[in-house]
């Protein structure tokens, strides 16, 4: 996993609440058995005027000029500014994969759906929760100023706005540590192998039925 420390990037504002995972990446693309290649179909149904299917040349499809992602001024964005309950719906990790593949490394919203939030960290992405007021202000600033950039500083847990104002944010220590150091969660957990074995043998005595198979 790529480490995340600081990021200065262009901000893409998506002014809609409850953006669900079906909207982030429609189901026809979930048939892929890969982790990459989902970027061109991020927000597919809002982004293109036609119906997309896997295997199409997405570069040739008609774009929806009204969708924010297609506007010239937001090309190359690395930070997504969103509204409440972003990423609700399914557990599909294809949603963060699509955002990442498109180039988004950091998301800012008043709240995120639990599973989506968790999935971001597994992919070296930073979801930042700010209060509604701070998010409203950011939307206003981004819209008012083409080329609007934010600086996200994870070690210091702060966001620096274009006007120099600083907004602090909270993050769990463990998540921060893994993200800043780009650590592999599985390897970290396997360092506890002995504890897991101990737990397992104790549990086998207490609740043997949990370890049986068919007609156990």
């Amino acid at each position: 996993m790529d480490a995340f420390t600081t990021l200065r990037g262009l901000v893409l504002p998506l002014d809609r609440a409850n953006v669900d995972t079906d909207a982030i990446i429609p189901k026809q693309y979930l048939k892929s058995i890969k982790r990459t290649g989902f970027g061109p179909t991020l927000f597919d149904e809002w982004r293109y005027l036609d119906h997309g299917e896997p295997g199409m040349d997405h570069g040739k499809r008609p774009l929806n000029p009204d969708f924010v992602l297609n506007q010239e001024r937001y090309q190359g964005a690395q930070i997504l500014l969103a509204r409440a309950n972003f990423g609700c719906g399914s557990s599909r990790e294809h949603a963060p994969w699509a955002l990442l593949d498109y180039g988004i490394r950091c998301l800012i919203a008043p709240s995120f759906a639990d599973i989506f939030y968790n999935n971001c960290f597994k992919n070296g992405m930073l979801p930042v929760v700010l209060d509604e007021g701070a998010v409203d202000d950011l939307f206003a600033q981004v819209e008012a100023q083409p080329g609007y950039q934010l600086k996200v500083d994870l070690p210091a847990q702060r966001i620096v706005r274009a006007d120099g104002a600083v907004i602090g944010f909270d993050i769990e220590a463990g998540r921060k540590h893994s993200l800043v150091n780009g650590l592999d969660d599985i390897a970290l957990t396997l360092e506890q192998t002995e504890l897991i074995r101990e737990y397992e043998s104790k549990r086998k005595t207490e609740a043997p039925w949990l370890f049986g198979g068919e007609a156990g």
Binding site: E93, I115, N118, N119, D185, I186, T189, Q192, I196, E200
Partner: peptide
């Protein structure tokens, strides 16, 4: 509860999950 694909891999490999 539902988990993402990275966690599917994590559970396959370790039988555990890190949770809050």
């Amino acid at each position: 509860f539902g988990i993402g694909t990275s966690e599917v891999e994590h559970v396959l490999a370790t039988q555990c999950l890190r949770q809050r």
